[in-house]
Amino acid sequence: MSQSSKKNHIFLKHTADVKFQAFGKTPEKCFENAACALKEILTSQRIKTIKTKKISCKGKDFESLLYNFLEEFLFLLNSKNFIFSKIKKIDIEIQKKQYKITAEIQGDSSKNYQIKTDIKAITYNDMFVKFDDKTKKYACQVVVDV
């Protein structure tokens, strides 16, 4: 894990779908890097920052929060033809088992880019979000259905 911990995210082997891990010093950074991995699956092109969107999602643990957060990007791509470029602000609030994430994301119309893979869904398969004592970083793992 020592090598991979230097990277923000890594892709792992999976037969049918795509599996990745993302890392960050804070849960926010870890989630942001997971979103970047998701974008890398969708396209290898550089996305311009033309539009800004606010998103917010809830969950009852870190895993369901991550699932709902990443799903929001698929929803925006399918329903609004929006692909994100970067995350401007991101904040996670935890209150009595209620997890909430709010973010301001920037991006562009997906019609201007080549989408190489359509992600069907985020899955709970092998998913985790945890603090790694060795690297002193948060790490998450996600398998997406493509």
Partner: peptide, 8 residues
């Protein structure tokens, strides 16, 4: 499928 997908 038998081979993994990769993202590179």
């Amino acid at each position: 499928r038998v081979k993994s997908r990769t993202v590179s």
